[in-house]
Design a protein around this nucleic acid. Structure first.
Lengths: 195, 195
DNA sequence: CAGCTGACAGATATTGAAATCTGTCAGCTG
DNA sequence: CAGCTGACAGATTTCAATATCTGTCAGCTG
């Protein structure tokens, strides 16, 4: 058979772009590199993405969506909302900490991308806050949580836990005592939430 | 009288350095500039500060200490701990937001300095957490707060409110809804703290 | 003729030589 | 002679020339 003469698709370009970003880092990853990795001219890439910025934004969205999806399973479970909320926070923190620790360079690359794409990050945050709101609403319905406005409470929960999922704090996540600090914040927030 | 032939002191050097930083920004403020502002040679500055980094660290500490001092008055008051805690958070947030809003360039300058001087920032945070601990202890003593370990609880309060005092979030402080988000977080934390 | 190529203009990044700065210290000065 | 100066070496920054990249588009190709 011929050496995989696949047609060029947005999906394939995104995969190649991730690979190029992983290899060269955010500062040196060029559209020409992506085209070369795909064996096409860089003009072809511009047929699928209007600009380099649009291409990088699409990569960023894909990456953020992967995090959201892994957490949505916890939201969908049919369990005690308090336990789900604890698990959700733990899963979010563990996922972020693992990404930052396992491959610091790749994590730094995605930090640059998220800095560039405030809109995509805003959507991602709205998504996560929406997940929190669903858990809070379940708790209110079950009578275990008190919340005048679950949306406002969900935002408060998100903001109050930023120290443990905002990538800007990543360097502090491996310091001793961080796990205790995390538990103390979650405990305090859950106490405040109880009916 | 002669044109103020004052003797050279660490204090005068620090004042001149602040002025130079204000004028030229952190990237272009040199030791030579500071010496020129004082009418001395740059060698004299090195008599009082071993390195440029030490000079900048001293400026950073002075600046951070001013914030701590303005808050310590609230800690020392003889009032309901819950009200003091609310006022303390409000004062901290208001002070930070005012600094960031009134003179964004100077604020950016101090962001660079704090990035450079992690140790000074660490001490400052320990100082603020200590103030929180004193308020929590007062609340526990008065029977209005519950806290197994006031030190841990104070750390949790600090971390949970970072969205509203960590300068890295300054760009978000002027967005609409921020005041509501702040109140929601403080309300949630105080609910969690109540006996 | 849909999809791709590659040459091109303007924008951005790299590079290396020149300029400036940091930190030291022998000697000056009041 | 305590405190300051200013020349100096090595480190860092600046700047302008050069190279590379982005985004377009007329035309090629299967």
């Amino acid at each position: 058979m011929a050496p995989t003469p696949q047609i060029l698709t947005a999906e394939r370009i995104l995969e190649a772009t991730e690979e190029v970003l992983r290899r060269h880092g955010p500062a040196k990853a060029t559209v020409v590199d992506v085209a070369r990795a795909l064996g096409v001219s860089h003009g072809s890439v511009y047929r699928h993405f209007r600009t380099k910025a649009a291409l990088r934004e699409a990569v960023t969205k894909r990456w953020l969506d992967r995090t959201s999806e892994s957490l949505s399973a916890i939201v969908a479970e049919d369990r005690d909302p308090e336990a789900r909320l604890r698990d959700w926070f733990s899963a979010l923190f563990a996922a972020k900490r693992r990404k930052a620790g396992d491959d610091p360079e790749l994590f730094a690359t995605y930090m640059v991308l998220t800095d560039e794409n405030g809109d995509a990050v805003g959507e991602h945050i709205a998504d996560l806050v929406g997940q929190l709101r669903r858990i809070v609403e379940a708790g209110v319905a079950a009578g275990t949580f008190t919340a005048d406005d679950p949306g406002t409470t969900a935002r408060a929960l998100f903001h109050a836990s930023r120290r443990f999922h905002d990538p800007r704090y990543a360097p502090e996540w491996e310091q001793p005592g961080t796990e205790d600090d995390f538990q103390a914040v979650v405990d305090l927030l859950l106490r405040g939430l109880k009916a």
